[in-house]
Design a protein around this nucleic acid. Sequence first.
RNA 1: GGCCCGUUCGUCUAAGGGCUAGGACACCACCCUUUCACGGUGGUGAUACGAGUUCGAAUCUCGUACGGGCUACCA
Length: 507
Amino acid sequence: MDKRVRVRFAPSPTGGLHLGGMRTVLYNYLFAKKHGGDFILRIEDTDQSRYVAGAEEYIFNCLKWVGLEPNESSIHGGIYAPYRQSERKELYRKYAEQLVKDGHAYYAFDTPDELEKMRHDYKTELNPSPQYDHNIRTKMKNSISLSSDETKKLLNENARHVIRIKMQEHEIVSFTDMIRGDVSIDTSLVDDKVLLKADGMPTYHLAVVVDDHLMKISHAFRGEEWLPSAPVHILLWKYLFGLDEMPQWAHLPLILGPNGKLSKRDGAKYGFPVFAMNWTDPKTNELTEGFKEKGFLPEAFINLLALLGWNDGTEQEIFTKEELIEKFSIERVHSGGAKFDYEKAKWFNHEWIKKSSVDSLQSIVHSLLIEKGITSVDNSVLGKVIGLVKDRCTLLTDFYDQSYFFFKAPEKWDADAVKPKWNEAKQLFFAEVVRNYESNNDWTAVVLEKGFKEITVAHQIKPGEVLLPFRIMLVGGKFGPGVFDIAEIIGKEETISRIKKGLAVFA
RNA sequence: GGCCCGUUCGUCUAAGGGCUAGGACACCACCCUUUCACGGUGGUGAUACGAGUUCGAAUCUCGUACGGGCUACCA
């Protein structure tokens, strides 16, 4: 059987592409690819009041960045188009009416105020949040409590109404989850969910079942927060299409922040990204930082996401996308939630930067430097620089701090580290170094170091006393790779110029 | 409140009845390095609690506690 695996998203700020959603996509993708199936992305835009312009494109951009593009979606198209819910609106009413006809659903005419009143009136200490269920529905305004004439009259008058599922009083609904095994839930605990809203749009509950059937979905992945309403979906499948056709479900564990389900707020509060890419909410102008802009490699992002709740049973932690596809198994996904650890996330990125070739980093570091105002970047120089500093970079943005001095002479010097011990002897020493380097015809780190050391001997100075000042002349502070490597790369002219400048500053 | 899901070092996790509960991140120490890192070696550190089943339980069962989720004309 062909595997058709799908994931659904709402283009809204709350349902946007945070870590949890991204991981759902990833597992979905890995599972589909592993079994030679199709990865289908569905967009939920049923609730126009929450719809955020640009959010859908944003989701696709994120997927593009990490290379998890779907086979079918609202932008990629596919044989079951359209893939956007608002464009499928007309489909859903038919199924909702069918359910009413078969006695599995009913019309409800209650206004928001009446619902509010019900929640207030039936609220007790024992039941702080009363539900629209088999007890309450007889007391509300719907086609079960009203006579059929009254119902007809209201429908003919075009009274605002919704269609609700009629949950059985006591029925145990069971299904097998790919991660958790057998799960059973008593229907009496689930309320009569709205299936079709007053504006004619379906709720998630109806849409997910109708779409999965129409699009011949075989596997459906979603977050654990959907578990309590799973019986609604199972029952709808039973009533509408039969359970044999129902996709296999996998309810993924939640990704937790420091306090509970990871939220956008957690990122701002604790200083780490929770979205794949930068996202500016057009309604509030609020910026949510992304992993991409923070300096993560897409390979690292996928890797750390995959390992948050899954492992292959070995001690391997660094996986390429291809290895993940090969080794992923949904049965090995944890059932418990995982707390996101930003320190470990950074470690994954560091590993990936070290693992990446100079060539693959070149263009990304180049544009980063330009962004930071370093305009004259020679590509062959940059290649050498990247090779020299990449082991010291945890985030891509670290490349700036680790390498700007190759392209720009220091303008400030950590003079406190030099001046107190500065003296005439050192002044003379560096004057000698300048003379030596000026006559140098073999500008390599090894030769430069040899010349430098010889002069320390001649001047009876310990290398340790002049190495630090030399470093500060070249880069401005106590950081960076080996000084002679730096000197080799910046070249003869620049090295001598920086020594002379340093001598003037320290004198 | 009700229901659902979960619980192994601080964090992510391995161990599917059987050697001193293994690894990674973080942390600490030492080594390397005449800067800062990288790297190397080592260390601190966990089966939530209580019963039961068993020759033997992190592992199976029950209870308790704790954590999370759901309880909308949101998804």
